[in-house]
């Protein structure tokens, strides 16, 4: 038994050292349908399938890891992984510290989800995930911002009355609205912020950015990206 274990360990190690060109992808794993940990305990969702496809086209060997949203940029800069693929919107502020690939999801609508149609989203308490474009928007809007570390908690805050509404990507909120039997409703108009969702990279990784951009362009051109969006976001999902 011991020998077997040792042999397996050695195999794993030698197999590991054989190929050097491995790209580590980091995601949050809590933002369905973009990315989530499925019931098998593995990363799944739109970005899982998209990421695997991009890696295949760019001839890169990719491995997945999860990281807390809060520290996802510092850990990229520290070199703990190479690409952020976590539904991250392209903004000027983020572009100052990291670089983005071409967007692989169009600038999407954000929306308010509330427990009642007359919820006060202009001056009331609005929940959002910390460090997101939506949180920044709420802070500017005059409403009182209530931040949570995970997206799920922002919706839970509305259910238990802590916040009047939650402000997040509409694609993320839509299943909550449709599956709540009318308990949760969208309030007000959709608001479009951000420059679409892109892969986050270190500013020095220009070569990797080039490879990924080429793959994304190809996927846009042959319609396979739109097909993926259709699969995960349904007919409401925005297409290129």
């Amino acid at each position: 038994m011991k020998k077997l274990l040792l042999a397996t360990a050695l195999m794993a190690l030698s197999a590991g050292f054989a190929s050097a060109d491995v790209v580590r992808l980091a995601t949050e794993g809590a933002y369905p349908p973009f990315n989530f940990i499925d019931d098998k305990g593995e990363v799944a969702g739109f970005e899982r399938e998209f990421g695997d496809e991009v890696c295949k086209r760019a001839a890169l060997e990719c491995t997945w890891t999860t990281n807390e949203w809060d520290s996802i940029i510092p850990n990229l800069q520290s070199g703990n992984y190479d690409v952020i693929i976590a539904g991250m919107s392209i903004t000027d502020e983020r572009s100052k510290v990291i670089t983005f690939s071409d967007n692989y999801y169009p600038p999407a609508a954000s929306a308010y989800l509330a427990a009642s149609a007359d919820a006060d989203v202009k001056t009331g308490i609005v929940s959002a995930q910390v460090g997101t474009i939506q949180a920044a928007y709420v802070a500017e809007s005059g409403a009182t911002l209530l931040e949570f570390p995970t997206p799920d908690e922002t919706v839970a805050a509305v259910r238990n009355g802590e916040a009047a509404a939650v402000f997040a990507d509409k694609d993320y909120l839509r299943p909550f609205a449709t599956e709540s039997n009318g308990a949760l409703v969208f309030v007000g108009e959709d608001i479009s912020i951000g420059g679409g969702v892109g892969l986050g990279l270190r500013q020095s990784d220009t070569e990797l950015k080039g490879k990924l951009d080429t793959a994304i362009k190809a996927m846009k051109a042959d319609g396979s990206l739109n097909a993926l969006i259709e699969k995960y976001f349904g007919p409401e999902g925005l297409k290129f």
């Binding site: 369905p32 019931d39 807390e68 299943p175 599956e179």
Partner: peptide
Amino acid sequence: FLLSVKDIVYYARELGGTKTQAYDYPHAD
């Protein structure tokens, strides 16, 4: 969890959170 080691509290939060139809086993909070 700050060190990206997933402990019991991380899993309790992750498993307990509302699960939509995107998951195999949808359930409330």
